[in-house]
Design a protein around this nucleic acid. Structure first.
Lengths: 148, 148
DNA sequence: AAATACTTGTTTGTGTACGAATAATCTAGG
DNA sequence: CCTAGATTATTCGTACACAAACAAGTATTT
């Protein structure tokens, strides 16, 4: 076994994670049912549907986006009229985010597509493998034990 | 079970893949041993070490980058003097890429770090789980059966 | 040989990603 | 009260990611 054989790109976790993520993104784009909506934007809408109201930074932590990324995602959703922003009266640094009527009905219309996308992403695996995979993947996705 | 419970962001394959990839990127950056080098740039250097000479588009397929992304990655590596570009005499559309001396010694010095990064990425899993995970992940990473 | 089709590399435009710096605000400790 | 420290949102700069359009070159078809 030469040095050359000791590091094979195709066997590295990072490379495979990136490719699996690429494949998922392609499936998302084909099936979400709204050509403008991206995975991150959809994640924000879903979280807002669950929580009704959250500050921008807090929502960023819940969706695993840093503050700078969040800024752009929120700006684009707001410019489409899908979410509303208003200042927090108790903390003037904060922006409170919520779904607009339009945003709310859009999420409801698209959530089932979201489930289909996950199913299609995992389709190459059997039902048992899917469960195993998601369990292991969840262990690897712990960014650094920030719960909440 | 309400509609709200039927789509939980934290259980979606796409979200978990994204977070796992984020975690891997952070581990990469801390451990690769060259502050400027990114995961994609490293992948290009490793592939060039294995193949000696490849055209830019071909290398892009091997590392799963589209032509536009490749363009930027190669430009940055060339500007650091790590790779060399010369026209293919047999096909004047093509650019043939290869490692420079500097690039070659850099890869040799860093490959072992690459293995460590993969190990650390998978560390939350037992040895058996790691093998299972990589097998399943590889099945999900098949972009569309383009082999080569 | 000429027209058609495909490939290679580049550019443009939009959208993540994230480090770093900043201004405004809040919180805690003395 | 008041200052040192933390938090929130924004901006800037760099690096993917990829669709779309393009120029130049190669291949194929008739």
């Amino acid at each position: 076994m030469t040095a050359k054989d000791s590091y094979i790109l195709e066997r590295q976790a990072g490379h495979l994670l990136r490719r699996a993520h690429q494949r998922h993104s392609a499936i998302f784009q084909e099936n979400i049912g709204d050509a403008q909506l991206t995975p991150l934007q959809f994640a924000v809408l879903v979280k807002l549907r669950d929580l009704k109201e959250v500050s921008q930074n807090h929502l960023g932590r819940l969706t695993a986006m840093d503050a700078a990324t969040m800024q752009g995602v929120i700006k684009r959703l707001a410019s489409r009229g899908l979410i509303e922003r208003r200042p927090d009266p108790n903390d003037r640094r904060r922006l409170i985010l919520s779904l607009s009527e339009k945003g709310s009905s859009l999420v409801e219309a698209l959530v089932s597509n979201g489930s289909g996308i996950t199913a299609q992403t995992l389709q190459p695996l059997s039902a048992a493998e899917q469960k195993t995979f998601l369990d292991l993947l969840a262990k690897l996705a712990q960014l650094n034990g920030h719960s909440e």
